[in-house]
Structure formats: C-alpha cells, structure tokens
Amino acid sequence: MATDEGGLRERKKRETRFALSQAAIRLTIERGWNNVTVEDIAVAANVSERTFRNYFANKAEAIVATHVERGRRTAEALRERPAGEPLWDALVNAVVAQFEPPPGHDGAVQDGHGTVPDGYAAALQRLLAEPAVQYEVFRAHTTAQDELTAAVADRTGTDAGDLYPQTVAAVISAGIGTALTRWSRNPTGSIGTLLREVFDSIRAGLPDPR
C-alpha cells in the first residue's frame, strides 16, 4: 500500500511539473519572454506561485522541463517494449510515442503536433535563443541522454558506463535534436513523421544522398 501511495505521489508530481512546463512554453510563445512572470505561469497551471517555486528555480527551467520529462518517458517506454523487438525498432517506437497526440487532443500546438498559429515559428525561435533557455536546454539534454543510456544498458545487458549504450544514446539524442530543430524552424506536419525519417536515414547508415 505504501509503495502504491508513493508511486501515486510521484506521478502527481510529474504531472504538475509537466503542466507548469507546458504553461510556461505556451505563455512565453504567446507573449514573449519578458512579458511572462512566474506568477502568470502558476495561474495558468492552476497552482500557487509557491508551488511553482517548489518545482523550479526560474521560468527557463520550467520551459525545458518538458524535454526532461520526455527523456524519462522515453527511457521508461524503451524498458517496456517487447523483449524480442530489435533494439533499433524499440528505440524508434519509444521515441516517437512521446510525440504522438494524447487522446482527446484539442488541436493546439504541443510537443510537435497540432495546428500551428501564425507567428508560432518565429516566436519559438526567439524563445530558444534566450541565453537562460539555452543553458537549461544543455542541462536537460545531458539528463535525458543519461536516462536513455541507462535504459539501453538494461535492455542490452551492458553497463551504463560502457561505450555501446553511451554511443547509442548519443546517436538517438542527436537524431531527436535534429528533428526538433528542423521542426521548430518550420512547425508544420507531424514531428513523429519527421523523427522516423531521421531515424530511417541513420538506420541505413546515412548513405550519400547523391
């Protein structure tokens, strides 16, 4: 019973972190970096400013938390893939699943799907160019890659300190980063489709396009 309660508390904490992160992203894209306060984000997520401070030190950290949570979900999804599934298939399916629209999705842009409003791409680029956000993105990237390395090691019977799982995680992280960067510059269509295109190219050994 205690274990169930602990798991429920942890899930609720992750849900709150994700809600705050999504609110931070949406508001800063709509209003601009300098026109959004921590209080604004807390109100949008229907929590107190104190609750926000319990989770994040600043709004940049909140914005990037979505990437951290996605990394954790990807690692968890990889561990849950069928044991007999080839590693690369399992990795791609685990990654793409994190960018698929949730049930009942209302069409708003979120995590790479939905209808893109006018000016979204430019606003997103301005947000990602903020030095504070860039710093947090670097930290989040490291955390997400470490999570994936551990999951790959578990699946392949290797150690997280070995070169193999570290290389696999680095390649997957680079592929995700490439797709996200491309999509942020032209946010149309499904990012899941773009991810599969990137990973298909990697799977083929990055053949000469000529």
Rank of each mutant, 00 (worst) to 15 (best):
G161F: 00
V64C: 13
V92I: 15
G71V: 05
D154R: 13
D162S: 13
A62D: 03
F199E: 09
A123S: 13
P101N: 05
R155Q: 04
V198L: 05
D118H: 11
A90G: 15
P117V: 02
A144D: 02
V38G: 12
R196I: 09
G6N: 13
G189V: 03
P187W: 05
D4V: 12
I63P: 05
Q98A: 11
V64G: 05
H67E: 14
A23P: 08
P102M: 03
W88F: 15
G7E: 14
V198K: 01
A90P: 06
T3D: 11
G175N: 01
S48L: 08
H67V: 06
L124W: 02
R155S: 07
L180N: 07
G192A: 12
H113F: 11
I176Y: 02
I25Q: 14
G157N: 09
D154Y: 00
Q110S: 12
P82D: 11
I29L: 09
A140I: 10
S48G: 14
R70H: 08
V152N: 08
G112A: 00
V137I: 14
G192I: 04
A83V: 15
G157R: 13
G84A: 11
A83P: 03
A151H: 01
A151E: 02
N35T: 00
A23C: 06
Y120R: 08
S201G: 11
E85A: 11
I202P: 02
P103N: 10
T142I: 10
W183R: 07
D118I: 01
T51C: 09
A169M: 07
A132Q: 14
F199S: 02
A24P: 11
P165E: 06
E100K: 13
T188K: 03
R79N: 10
V92A: 04
I41K: 05
R53F: 15
A2Q: 14
L195P: 06
S184V: 04
D159S: 15
L128R: 14
E136S: 02
I41N: 01
A65E: 15
T3V: 14
T149Q: 07
A132Y: 00
G175R: 03
D4L: 12
G205V: 08
G104T: 09
T167K: 01
H67Q: 14
E30H: 09
T66C: 03
S184Q: 03
L127T: 06
A45Y: 04
A75T: 06
E147L: 06
Y135W: 07
P103V: 03
R72V: 07
A60L: 10
A97H: 07
V109Q: 13
